[in-house]
Write a protein that binds this DNA or RNA. Structure first.
Lengths: 122, 122, 122, 122
DNA sequence: GTGGTCTAGACCACC
DNA sequence: GTGGTCTAGACCACA
């Protein structure tokens, strides 16, 4: 039942790390799990984690200190947000609208829910 | 790497069947795949498919004709939509709003995208 | 005698492709060798070529047409030049200066050679 | 992936030895590694090392003391520099200029880098 | 055929 | 111990 895994594993790992950073569970300058650690945790091949970390370095979300490990970059939070915003607007939002269309749900039904959501947060 | 499986498999199968019905790929009165067939297609245990079909019968989306198989109910499309609407509004919408909040995306950014989406559909 | 291979193979392949493009041997819109072809030509693993092509796509030097192959991008020449300029200025130039220093060669000795070079080209 | 091996191995060994001498890692009168030692270190055939040492003796960079081994010549540093200068000016410099031309880099861009380089050394 | 993803296991340099 | 590179071989979706 793994039909439709939509995203490659390494990008799912990228999202996983971004979420940790955006939720401030991993702060600026903190060491992130080593390639091998995370590979064990997520039960994937170390190379797959490596690929995710390469991607995150290229996006300047984490950086490498030789022989020590990978750390959350100074602009890590900002860059993680920029990357995830882009993905959200170009992938999740269209899928969301497609579902709304299929289920014949109008925007007017969502607005009160959004207001309620904001109130509960404030 | 199966962290984040959010839903039990049998409910994922329910969603799968509902989508087929809502997209009119399986029409009113059509025979739906047998438990064994679908179990093979989705590579899951037949018991799991059985559980999904029980659920769908209870929601009056499919019905059982003894010895012949399962068929899309007369109100199947309507009931599938009602079920999925409920799930969408109570699960996917809140998750969507939570993402918007985390990524600091405002409704005003979504509105033009929604208009564009509707136009492209019309 | 492979001491000091300085650059990873996949970046050497990147340089190889950039040179072909900058020398106009592979023009804008041309199909570049497939991953498997180039792997055979250069006697390396297809994954290593894949890595080079991923890098080149990310730099917008080549682009992928699904199922057909990789092609030189519209701005391929420009982007190849930008990339190679950066590498040249940050890697080859310092090494060149270090050699000049070690061999006690002054800039004044190079200037006449450069003028001669330009004349021979014009 | 050995395209671009530019120079025969024995001349690469010559360069290797010259660099050791110019960097004062092997001083005047010091014994240089035996043919067999260097062959093991560089993982090449002893005959290839032999050929390099013959070349270096002919250039009066090292000399042979029967039964004792090879030693850095009195004018070893000077002669190594003269040889390498010649090679540098006739091989590396033209290649460097060719790259500059291909990458459309002007001398004016290099001058500030050279000044900076000299300052950092002083 | 094409590119792309993933695993397994190896070896390297750096600290 | 760390990240990084490379190979070998598998499987997938797309055309």
């Amino acid at each position: 039942m793994d039909f439709h895994e939509q995203q490659p594993i390494y990008l799912q790992i990228v999202d996983y790390v971004c979420e940790k950073i955006l939720l401030k569970q991993w702060g600026k300058g903190d060491r992130v799990p080593s390639v091998r650690e995370l590979a064990v945790t997520l039960e994937v091949n170390p190379n797959t984690v490596m690929r995710a970390y390469e991607f995150l370095q290229q996006k300047e979300i984490v950086y490498n200190q030789r022989g020590l490990g990978l750390f959350v970059a100074d602009d890590g939070v900002k860059n993680a947000r920029i990357y995830r915003q882009h993905e959200f607007l170009h992938k999740e939002v269209p899928a969301f609208f497609a579902s709304m269309s299929l289920l014949q749900i109008g925007v007017e039904e969502l607005e009160p829910m959004f207001k309620k959501y904001r109130k509960s947060k404030a």
